[in-house]
C-alpha cells in the first residue's frame, strides 16, 4: 500500500514543527558559551564595548565615540569603513543633558 501524499506532507510539517520546538528547548537549555567569562573580564578591566568591528575607532568603541566621528577628519570626508554602515551613532549623542557640554 502506497503512502498518501497528505500523510507524507503532514509528517514532514510535524517533523519541521518539532524541530522548531527543539530550537526553543535548545536555546533555553544551552550553556552560556563563555558568557560568564566575558562578563567577568568586562567587570575586571572596565571594558565598555564589544570587539566586533576593529577597523575604525568609532566602530570599535561606538559607545565612547565622539560627536562627529564619521566626518571628523574633514567635512566631506565620508565614512569609508564598511562597518560604519552597520553601526549607528550612539543614541546618547542625540540626547542633550543639563549641565554637560555636548
Amino acid at each position: 500500500m502506497s503512502i498518501r501524499p497528505s500523510s507524507l506532507m503532514i509528517g514532514t510539517l510535524l517533523l519541521l514543527g518539532a524541530a522548531v520546538l527543539a530550537l526553543f528547548v535548545h536555546a533555553y537549555s544551552s550553556t552560556d558559551n563563555g558568557l560568564a567569562a566575558r562578563a567577568r573580564l568586562v567587570g575586571q578591566l572596565g571594558l565598555t564595548d564589544l570587539a566586533l568591528f576593529t577597523e575604525a575607532r568609532y566602530t570599535r568603541h561606538p559607545s565612547q565615540a565622539d560627536l562627529h566621528s564619521a566626518f571628523q577628519d574633514h567635512p566631506m570626508s565620508l565614512d569609508h569603513f564598511p562597518s560604519g554602515s552597520l553601526v549607528s551613532p550612539p543614541r546618547h549623542n542625540f540626547a542633550p543633558r543639563t549641565g554637560v557640554q555636548q
Binding site: D49, S63, D66, R91, H92, R97, G99, V100
Partner: peptide, 29 residues
Amino acid sequence: PTIIGKIGVRVPGSRVVTRSDILRTYQSI
C-alpha cells in the same frame, strides 16, 4: 543624573558616558 549635572559645572568641557548610555547604544545595534 544629578552627578552628571555637577560634573558639567566642575569639569568644563567634559562629556559623561554612563553605563545606561552604553547599554542603550548596543540595544540599537
